[in-house]
Amino acid sequence: MRKMVEKSLEEAFAGESMAHMKYTIFAEVAEREGKKNIARLFRAIAYAEFVHAKNHATNLGYVKSTEENLSTAIGGETFEVEDMYPAYLEIAKYFEEKGAERSFHYAIEAEKIHAKMYEDAKDKASKNEDIEEKSIYICPVCGYTYMGDEPPEKCPVCGAPQDKFVKF
C-alpha cells in the first residue's frame, strides 16, 4: 500500500473512532436529559462511524486472528500502563490539573487489569481454547474491571458502590 493511502486510512480510522466514542457519550447525555430519540440518533450514527472505522482497520491490516489481536491488545495496554499514562499523569500533576490527574490514575489502574485479562485470554487462545464463562463488571466511574460472580462492594480504585457496576 502506498504511504499516502496508508496515512489517509490511519487518519480516517482515528477520526471515525473518535466520532464513534463522542457520539456514544453524547447519547448518554441526551438519555439523561430525557431525549430518548436524540440518544437513539446519536447511537445509530455512532454505529455507522464504527462501521467506517472497522472498514479502515481491515484495509490497514489491523484485524487478524484472535491470538494476534490479543497480542496487539496486550501491547497497547502495556504501553498505556508503562509509558503513556505515567507521562500524562506527571504533566497533569505539574500543572495541578486535578481532574486530569484523576482521569489518568483511573485509566492506569484499569489498564493494568485489562493487560492481565488479555494475557490470560491469549494463553487460552494459544491452546485453541476460550476463556471461562464469567460475568465481567465495569465500574462506570473509573473503568475498573472485574471478572467473576459479583464485583466488590465498593470499587477498589474510586469507591463507587457495587450497584453502579455495568455487567457484561
Rank of each mutant, 00 (worst) to 15 (best):
M4V: 12
M4D: 02
M4R: 01
E6I: 08
S8N: 09
S8L: 06
E10D: 01
A14W: 02
G15I: 06
S17M: 10
A19Q: 04
M21E: 11
K22M: 14
I25D: 14
I25C: 05
F26N: 08
E28I: 03
E28S: 15
V29L: 11
A30L: 04
K36L: 13
N37C: 11
A39R: 00
F42E: 03
Y47S: 09
E49A: 14
F50E: 00
V51S: 11
H52A: 10
A53Y: 03
A53L: 06
K54L: 13
K54T: 09
K54H: 07
N55S: 07
H56V: 00
H56Y: 10
H56E: 00
A57R: 05
T58I: 13
N59G: 01
N59W: 04
G61H: 02
V63D: 09
K64G: 14
T66H: 00
T66R: 08
E67M: 07
E68W: 14
E68K: 15
S71Q: 08
A73V: 01
A73W: 02
I74G: 03
T78D: 02
T78R: 12
E80H: 05
V81A: 11
D83Q: 12
D83L: 13
D83F: 08
Y88G: 11
I91R: 08
A92K: 02
F95M: 10
F95P: 11
E96H: 12
K98L: 09
G99E: 14
A100T: 08
E101Y: 04
S103Q: 10
H105W: 11
Y106V: 00
A107V: 02
E109I: 03
A110Q: 00
K112M: 10
K112Y: 06
K112C: 05
H114C: 04
H114A: 04
K116C: 00
E119C: 02
E119T: 10
E119Y: 00
D120V: 07
D120C: 09
K122R: 14
D123Y: 01
D123V: 06
K124A: 14
K124F: 01
A125P: 11
S126M: 12
N128L: 13
D130R: 02
D130M: 03
D130C: 12
E132K: 15
E132D: 14
S135P: 00
P140E: 09
P140A: 14
V141Y: 02
V141E: 12
T145V: 15
Y146Q: 02
Y146F: 15
G148P: 03
E150Y: 07
E150T: 14
E153G: 13
K154V: 13
K154G: 04
C155Y: 03
C155G: 01
P156G: 03
P156N: 01
C158D: 06
C158E: 04
D163R: 10
K164I: 08
V166W: 02
K167M: 10
F168K: 07
